[in-house]
């Protein structure tokens, strides 16, 4: 009790550290830290519900975008989904597109930490690890018929096309249709009606 009166707060915590009780607790925590089954997994191993849902969104997006014919080498060529940066989905994205076809095209997932390696993709998800390089990312896909999607803040203002955001506990997205158009992509009206529109000539309000 005296802890507080003598040294409030964090300092008090530090001072208390010498007491035996703390050491007990520390040992207990340490025990659980290491005794728990599993390993120090990277994000990729444990997608959260948020990313399970976002993976489903990505799959859905492919159904509402029309790519120019030139974006595919042939009629059977797959739709390529690229993950740029530190993959937050893990297997979730692979499981989501597994066995699916969109307009008779199968989907494949490719991953890279370099934007230029994903230029032949049709949809690229830009992970948060890239958030300091969004300008460069937009530049890398300049003119290419690639639908760019991300959950980095301000993505659609920095040349991105679809940006996820959280509204309360729900995943929502904003769309920059003029950016998509300038890359030769056609977005369906249904997609546009569900997203929050942003961009130069759309006066739509941020919510």
């Amino acid at each position: 009790m005296a802890l507080l009166t003598e040294e409030p707060g964090i300092t008090g915590l530090a001072r208390a550290r010498g007491r035996s009780g703390i050491r007990c607790l520390g040992a207990l925590i340490a025990l659980f830290l290491w005794a728990v089954p599993g390993r120090q997994a990277g994000a990729a191993d444990a997608p959260t519900r948020e990313y399970l849902v976002k993976a489903a969104f990505l799959f859905n997006f492919t159904q509402f975008v029309e790519w120019p014919a030139a974006a595919f080498p042939d009629d059977a060529a797959p739709i390529r989904l690229g993950i740029l940066g530190e993959d937050p989905f893990g297997r979730a994205i692979d499981d989501t597109v597994q066995g699916e076809t969109v307009r008779n095209r199968p989907l494949v997932v490719v991953r890279s930490r370099r934007a230029d390696e994903l230029k032949d993709c049709h949809l690229v998800f830009v992970a948060r690890s890239e958030r300091s390089r969004l300008d460069e990312v937009a530049e890398a896909f300049d003119q290419a018929p690639v639908l760019t999607v991300s959950d980095c803040d301000g993505f659609t203002r920095l040349g991105g096309m679809i940006g996820f955001f959280l509204d309360g506990a729900k995943v929502r997205f904003e769309i920059n249709p003029s950016e998509a158009l300038s890359h030769g992509l056609k977005l369906s009206a249904q997609l546009l009606s569900l997203g929050r529109l942003v961009g130069p000539e759309i006066g739509a309000p941020p919510r």
């Binding site: 948020e50 489903a56 859905n60 499981d95 995943v171 569900l194």
Partner: peptide, 18 residues
Amino acid sequence: PTTYKKLSLAELMEVDVI
């Protein structure tokens, strides 16, 4: 993960992720 891909966009937007 495959439970979510069966949902429509509108349904996905209603999933509470937290």
